[in-house]
């Protein structure tokens, strides 16, 4: 049981970086960006290709991040300069990335078995096992990224990006080019997603062209779990709640699998969870209307 829990925490930490990316596009920019499904695989593909050709695993992660920036840039340009709706722009980039990822890897999957990864370096340095080294590296990176994001969204540029998601009309009236802030936000979001993809690939020792399927839903589920359970008081606590949400999601999944749910049903389970969570406000409305009409009936009776 302890092993399962530790495994879930380690996986959650790696996915939390991806979830931070989803937070930027979905919550800060208010764009449902499906590029994520392709850019997480792109990050994995870039890392895997570099590692099997003898590259340094940490340098490989930097290149994963850069590749993600590029993916976000493409979606951003499609959406702002060519005025393609955000959802469709993301889908286009996602589909395009499928081919790109195959090209990057040269095949449908790459194994990094028994090769030097970021975790094996940490493991031999600190003398800890694989799971612990994933938790150490993943946790450190997630925390550092949270702090960087907290700083960045407090700067002039960061404030302008936040305001763009809030009220693009107002932001333009204040002299901000909203095309640029949207592009920048999408780049940052997908950079983090691709970095997360690189970290995940190194932890499972392989990259697969299919691994991104459903990742946006996992990101949303983690995001919403974090918001519901850990609140959203100020910006720092929001970012941290994203992190804890991603870990909680993995623990929940580990538990339901242990309780005997077939792994094949995982995506259905996640989709239903997200649908329920997203429709919560609607249920609350219905309940309130029901209450009011019931009270009204009582009065007239």
């Amino acid at each position: 049981m302890e092993q399962i829990l530790l495994g879930a925490v380690s996986l959650g930490l790696l996915w939390s970086i991806m979830t931070l990316g989803v937070y930027i596009s979905y919550r800060v920019l208010d764009v449902a960006d499906l590029t994520v499904e392709g850019s997480i695989t792109l990050g994995a593909a870039v890392t895997a290709r570099l590692i099997v050709t003898g590259g340094d695993p940490y340098v490989a992660l930097v290149f994963s991040f850069l590749a993600g920036l590029g993916a976000g840039l493409v979606t951003g340009l499609l959406h702002t300069k060519l005025r393609i709706p955000a959802l469709l722009s993301g889908i286009l980039t996602m589909i395009a990335l499928y081919s790109v990822n195959l090209r990057v890897m040269g095949m449908a999957n790459i194994s990094m078995l028994r090769m030097t990864t970021a975790y094996s370096i940490i493991g031999s340095l600190l003398g800890v096992n694989k799971t612990l080294s994933v938790i150490i590296l993943g946790g450190a990176m997630a925390l550092i990224i949270v702090l960087i994001l907290y700083w960045f969204f407090g700067t002039e540029v960061g404030s302008a990006i936040r305001a763009t998601g809030n009220n693009p009309f107002m932001v333009r009236a204040q002299g901000v080019n909203t095309d640029n802030t949207i592009i920048l936000g999408l780049m940052l979001a997908n950079g983090l997603v691709a970095l997360s993809g690189g970290l995940i690939a190194q932890s499972q020792n392989y990259a697969d062209v299919q691994m991104g399927t459903g990742s946006i839903v996992i990101g949303l589920a983690s995001l919403i779990i974090g918001e519901v359970l850990f609140g959203k008081r100020n910006f720092l606590s929001r970012l941290l709640s994203v992190l804890f949400g991603a870990i909680t999601y993995r623990i929940i999944i580990a538990l339901v699998l242990r309780l005997g749910m077939p792994a094949d049903d995982l995506k259905l389970f996640t989709a239903i969870t997200v649908a329920l969570a997203l429709s919560l406000p609607r249920f609350k409305d219905l309940r309130d209307t029901l209450k009011v009409s019931m009270n009204g009936r009582k009065k007239h009776a």
Binding site: F152, T155, E156, V157
Partner: peptide, 18 residues
Amino acid sequence: ENLALALRRGKRRGLGWG
């Protein structure tokens, strides 16, 4: 924060504090 956005109207926005 809203006032600060307005104060930077017409200025280049960088990585200084919002």
